[in-house]
Amino acid sequence: MSEPALSITGACKTFGGLKAVDDVSFRVNSGEIFGIAGPNGSGKSTLFNLMTGIPYGPSAGEVHFDGRRIDRWPAHRIARAGLCRTFQKDAEFPELSADETLQISAVYNGGQRRRDAADNVDKALTLVDFDPDRRTMRSDELSVYEKKQLMIASALVSNPSVLMLDEPASGLTKPEIEKLDALLIAVNRTGVTILLIEHVLSLLLSVSERLMVLNYGQILAEGDPQTVVKNPAVIEAYLGGRG
């Protein structure tokens, strides 16, 4: 079997007596889109947090990325190594423009020189189809969808090998979700492995090659998306018993 892009073994995260993530193990293959679903509070975002070190690492377990163990690395080192993520919330840096945000990301995360950074900023914004006329606006003046585009572009500008997206469709309209669907496919086709946490099942089922469902911090099911959503345990936990 080829080396996975990401490998998580026995990951746990406890907050006092609460086990938010409980002995979770899975692998993400290079080049795939791996979906993660689960009810609110099931540990999805906590799992992303402990994988990226923001704001905390795992209480126990191991995270391997690109063949290296990263669960004790500081967050900026993980990002520089090529494992990037986005958050659920909107603009990353409200007072910075899209151009400024991407330039910082290119220079720090990508280690690029100023001229190369400018080229890569253009490429990333073009890939996410960002309106060129709005590149110099403050991020907090952008629309919800533009903020999502900016978050994805700021991750892409440093040429990551794995992109982790935390509910990118939240707050979007149906036509915008369709555009996001096409965007994720386009990004994946450039060779970027994608981990996608999402509540919008139609998007998750449309783009994911494999799907994992969490409940109470544990893996409930994992595998082919169509098979997973028909799993009775998943229907009971995630869809509230509706068939």
Binding site: A79, R80, I104, Y108, G110, S158
Partner: peptide, 24 residues
Amino acid sequence: TRTGRSLRAVGQNQNSAALIGIDV
């Protein structure tokens, strides 16, 4: 400057600053 911009970024969002490779 690169460092000055990183300070502004950290001031606005520490978590996202770390995500774009800034040593907070």
